[in-house]
Structures are given as structure tokens and as C-alpha cells.
Design a binder for these strands. Structure first.
Lengths: 197, 197
DNA sequence: GCGTTCGTCCCCCTTTTATGGTATTGAATA
DNA sequence: TATTCAATACCATAAAAGGGGGACGAACGC
């Protein structure tokens, strides 16, 4: 795989491949030594995996463009890679032309992504509004929950909403019951993770 | 613009364009009437804009695929559109071929995105790790904070980490000081919003 | 060797939350 | 009209969290 990528990129005449490695071990040194513009990174590698590799490479050079080129399309790995600072994410079933195009886009500061990956990323933004309904929170309950996620205490929520603290309590009880939680942190966590507010 | 898109799509022989509208007014009715598989949507339109249009269209048909095709590339509009449930986001400077390809990808359930848009979306994920450093949380503190964001009580965190509850309390005190907060909900809120864990 | 940070643990005391009740009002609705 | 439900409010008690302090060993750097 590494061989054929090296050949592809070199023969394209567009890129110069100064080095190729079987894993991300010592990547910090390598990045400093070769000072590449782009890095093509797999995820599942021995010694140091690609996710960790991103972090390490970023540490050595904050500007180097890193393209994930891997077979993994499970959300965990994608989000881990993107969170670690990957600049693009292409699945290995992409065509050689697409890969070359992606590398050029990276040079322009853009972020090439396989549409299937983009799909998962977008789901992160939209999937929320659906769940919002299933808990059947009333408007007031949502308002209280929103205050809670902003870190307000019962007392502050009461002042903010101009209601008694006892009412805040009552709302919270019902919110907890509806969300099936039993503490403010759980409620905030659920609210933020599922974008209920 | 609408004319030429209609012509392009029709002549491609791949798509059938049942209707074209100058704005998103009455889109719910239109969606129900024509029951389209795909919708190509602009943002800046009179009467009802494209963002609102997404919400309305989704309301009429939760499964219809919506592709934003617009000149806007400011983050607000992008995130509003994606949050509202857009399935893809192409800039109008894309080639006709790219547009046709994008529509086909939509049919497959994928999410075509102009790499420049993807860039902004990715920034959302990675911009965080920067902040993660400024609070200078230690590894243990991060671990405690993570547990807290998962809704665990002090007692449960202590059990989970196999340390005394007093140690948990100490960690929390230091975390609160570093994050400049004074309650668990504030800490969880900050941690989740700024992706500290 | 000395200071610092980290991780660990303990005490005391106050405030806040959580849980379980009960109850009144008004609006919507069957 | 009777019923349901959302929103309001109160009480009591138990549990949890927050804020102040102090202590100690290990690791690290200077």
C-alpha cells in the first residue's frame, strides 16, 4: 500500500514524497527533519496509531496539513481524528485521481472529505432536533433546563425566570423524570449531548 | 440561474425536475404536492429564506434530501443550514459536473460538501484542542472532569477511579479554580461546550 | 538539597440539591 | 361540566456538593 501510494504520488509529477513510514512512531522527529507540507496518515498502525500521530505531528508543526487516508468509517475514529486536528478524511476506496485532487485541495487550505464521512459529520449537527421531541419537555421545562446548562443555581434560575425557587424545584423534578436522570450534571450532560436546548 | 439549473438537470437525463420556485414560501405544500427526492436550495431568497425553508421542508418530509447551493460561505449561515438539517452544502462556483455528482451522492445518502465548507465544519471540531491547553488541567483532573460530564456523583467518580472521595473533592476544587467556575453544572457546561474532555 | 507540582487523603461547616409529599390556579379539552 | 395538565408554590428530610483549611510522599527541575 505504502509502495503504491509512493509510486502514485511521485509519478503524478505534482508531489515530492520525501519519506514513508510504517507507523507514526517518532513522527515528531520526522516532521521536524523533513518539514513536509502534507502528511498522509492511516489510522490502524503498530507502535503509534494514526490518531495519536496527528496530535504528535501537530505538536511538531502546527501548520502541516494532515489527510487521513484509511478504511475506517466508524464515527468514533472519525471524530477522534478530526478532533485531533486532521484536515481531511478520505476513505481508501477513493480513486487515485480523487486522492491527488484532495492533496491539492489541502494545499489550498480546504478540507477534502469523502461524502460518506461528511454525512456522519453533518449528522452531528442535525440529528438533534428529532430527540428533542421524545422527552416532551414543556416550554417552561426547556427554559429551566437551558438555565441549568448555563450553570445557574436554583436560586439564580428562580431570579432569572422570576418565579419561586420552589417552582424551579418542581420543574427540575419533572425534567429529571422525563430525561430519566437524577442529578443536575446528568441533566446538563444529556441536554448538551443531545442538543435539547 | 434557476433556468439554467433546470436546463442542466433536465438535459443530464439523470434527473427529473418537477418544479422550480423563486423562494421557499409555501414549501411545505410544494413538498407534499410534488414529493421530491431531492431539493436544491439557495439561502438568500425573498419571502422565506433557505434556512427557514429547510426546517419547513423537513417538517413536510423528514427524508427528503436537501442540498444547499449558494454563494454564502460565512460560518453562521453554514452552521444554521446544517443544524436545520441540510444534507449537503455546495458553493455556486462548483462545476456543473460536480453538482450532478453531488446530487447522485445525496441519493446514496452521502453528504457532498465543497472542501472549503468542510474546512469550516472541521474547524468546529479541532478549534477546541487549543483551548484545552489554556486551562492546564492535569491528566487526573481531566479524568475527573470527564466522569463529571458523564453525570457521575463524587461517590461514583471515586469508585470509578479507585480513589477516595476526598481526593475527588480536591480534584474538583482545583478544576473549578482553573475553569473559573463554582458548580458542577458550570463545569460540565464549560467542558462540553469547549470540548475539554 | 530545595522548591514545585501532582496526586493522594482528612476534617469541619455551610449551602445546595434531590426526593417525597401536598395544594392552588387557570387554560384547554373531552 | 368535569377532567386533565401546566405552572405555580410550600414543607420536611436526607443526600450531595462547595469552600476553607491542612498534610504527606513521589517526581522533577534547578
Amino acid at each position: 500500500m505504502r509502495e503504491s501510494l509512493f509510486t502514485l504520488l511521485t509519478l503524478s509529477g505534482e508531489f515530492d514524497v520525501p519519506a514513508v513510514f510504517p507507523h507514526a512512531g517518532g513522527i515528531e522527529k520526522h516532521v521536524i527533519e523533513y518539514d513536509p507540507e502534507l502528511i498522509l496518515m492511516d489510522i490502524d498502525m503498530p507502535v503509534v496509531n494514526g490518531i495519536k500521530g496527528i496530535t504528535l505531528a501537530r505538536h511538531a508543526n502546527a501548520d502541516v496539513k494532515i489527510l487521513m487516508f484509511t478504511v475506517f468509517e466508524d464515527e468514533d475514529k472519525i471524530f477522534d481524528a478530526l478532533s485531533a486536528g486532521a484536515d481531511g478524511y478520505l476513505l481508501k476506496n477513493s480513486s487515485p485521481d480523487r486522492l491527488l485532487e484532495a492533496l491539492q485541495q489541502l494545499q489550498k487550505g480546504e478540507s477534502p472529505m469523502t461524502p460518506a464521512i461528511a454525512r456522519k459529520v453533518l449528522n452531528y449537527f442535525s440529528a438533534k432536533k428529532i430527540k428533542q421531541e421524545i422527552y416532551q419537555l414543556t416550554d417552561k421545562e426547556k427554559e429551566v433546563l437551558k438555565c441549568l446548562t448555563e450553570g445557574l443555581s436554583y436560586k439564580m434560575i428562580a431570579a432569572e425566570m422570576k418565579i419561586s425557587i420552589e417552582t424551579v424545584r418542581t420543574h427540575l423534578k419533572r425534567i429529571y423524570a422525563k430525561l430519566h436522570v437524577s442529578s443536575s450534571t446528568q441533566a446538563v450532560s444529556k441536554a448538551l449531548n443531545e442538543k435539547l436546548v
